[in-house]
Simulated assay, not measured.
Amino acid sequence: MKSADIKYLKLIGKNISRIRKEKGLTQVQVCDDIDMERNNFSGIENGRRNMTCITLKKIADSLDTEVIEFFRFD
């Protein structure tokens, strides 16, 4: 994977982590809700795993937010 791709995944993961923490949720709570192993979810938040659109939608639903919020890089 290219360096630019990894950077992009890290930015998305950082946003997912930030939103999850703002909602007061743990990784375990989100994982239970979306039926995902915690190590996989941790990999997403840390930018080590590429995820499908369906997974992004499941995470957004669990966090009661819109997928677009993961792509805000202000």
Rank of each mutant, 00 (worst) to 15 (best):
D32R: 12
K57H: 13
I59H: 00
S3P: 06
G24T: 07
E45V: 04
L56T: 00
D32W: 04
I12E: 00
S3T: 15
V67S: 04
E22R: 08
V28H: 09
D32S: 14
E45G: 03
S17Y: 03
I12N: 02
K10F: 08
D64E: 15
T55W: 07
K10I: 07
E69A: 15
F41C: 01
F41G: 01
I59K: 00
V30H: 04
A4V: 13
G13Y: 02
K2N: 14
L11E: 10
Q29H: 04
S3N: 15
R48A: 06
I68F: 10
I59E: 00
T52I: 04
I59S: 00
K21V: 12
L56G: 02
L25S: 06
K10W: 04
M51H: 05
R48E: 09
Y8H: 12
N39R: 11
D32Y: 06
G13D: 08
V28E: 11
C53P: 09
G13C: 05
F73D: 13
L9Q: 13
E45W: 03
D64L: 08
C31W: 15
I54E: 13
F41M: 02
A60H: 01
S42D: 10
K14V: 03
E37D: 11
K57S: 05
N40W: 08
R49L: 13
N50Y: 04
N39Y: 13
R72S: 14
K21Y: 10
F41D: 02
I6S: 09
N40F: 09
S3R: 13
T55A: 14
L56E: 01
